[in-house]
Design a binder for these strands. Sequence first.
DNA 1: GGCGTATTATAAGTATGCTTATGAAATGGT
DNA 2: ACCATTTCATAAGCATACTTATAATACGCC
Lengths: 146, 146
Amino acid sequence: MSKSDSEAQMSFELHSAARLLRRNFDRRAREHGLTRSRWQVLWHLARQEGLKQAELAENMDVAPISLTRQLDNLEQEGLVERRRDDSDRRCFRIYLTEAAQPALTVLRELAQATREQALEGLSAREVDQLQKLLGRVRQNLSRDEK
Amino acid sequence: MSKSDSEAQMSFELHSAARLLRRNFDRRAREHGLTRSRWQVLWHLARQEGLKQAELAENMDVAPISLTRQLDNLEQEGLVERRRDDSDRRCFRIYLTEAAQPALTVLRELAQATREQALEGLSAREVDQLQKLLGRVRQNLSRDEK
DNA sequence: GGCGTATTATAAGTATGCTTATGAAATGGT
DNA sequence: ACCATTTCATAAGCATACTTATAATACGCC
């Protein structure tokens, strides 16, 4: 296989693998009544709470306006909370509520299951290698992301 | 790093890298007036023409109905063609027109540029390794895709 | 050969994301 | 202190994808 072909193949595999990983998780999440856009918000909040909407949107890689509606819904259902910032009355700080904890537990289990399936048959060394190579690709691409 | 952490990290990198790759290409394509959904159709057709809409949709990983509208637009602009199948009057076979060729040339160049940026600093051997590892992940996940 | 089922494309309605515009509040230069 | 600029959240309108339903045609079992 020529260098250029191998590179093209790599793009294809990268795309496919990521799509399948997402899908696999989606399928599991859907069985629990969690839709993609919903679990993504919860997932990011579990990593870090108290962000402004704009910051959270940046983290999630969606436009702030797109997050607004998701938060509207999640807030209505009592899973997240908008708290006014004391020092800047323009913005809110976003927090999870206690009611969100059960969903998070489920999400963590689903993520684990998906990963196990994805990495079946790969040695710890190979997983590590894959992670490092992907990390370099990511850095190459994120250089000019702003 | 524990095994489980390393695995979680891998999912994150995979997701990120794929997203950035897509985005990088999108940004380039957009400068040429090509939107995501449009170039995806053209791209897949360049690989293989003459498919039924349902088959093409399956390849592209979208629902058939979603493809219908894209084809409506692309057909209107004369970039693709729906040809009736002789032996099955229910279905169309989809083909690119001559008018689509310039766009495809541009797409190929953009893809090349994106790949070069993504893989900067990786040796041919590393690219190959990455491709093979991703291939295994893909296979693990695509087993139960249907 | 004939009828039930499957397949193909599409339509209607809904969800979700984006671009662009807007109002309120903060910030910075002078 | 004042005005221009920036930032934050949201609104309106559009693009795109999905779920579910439907009409036309093909297929398969008996």
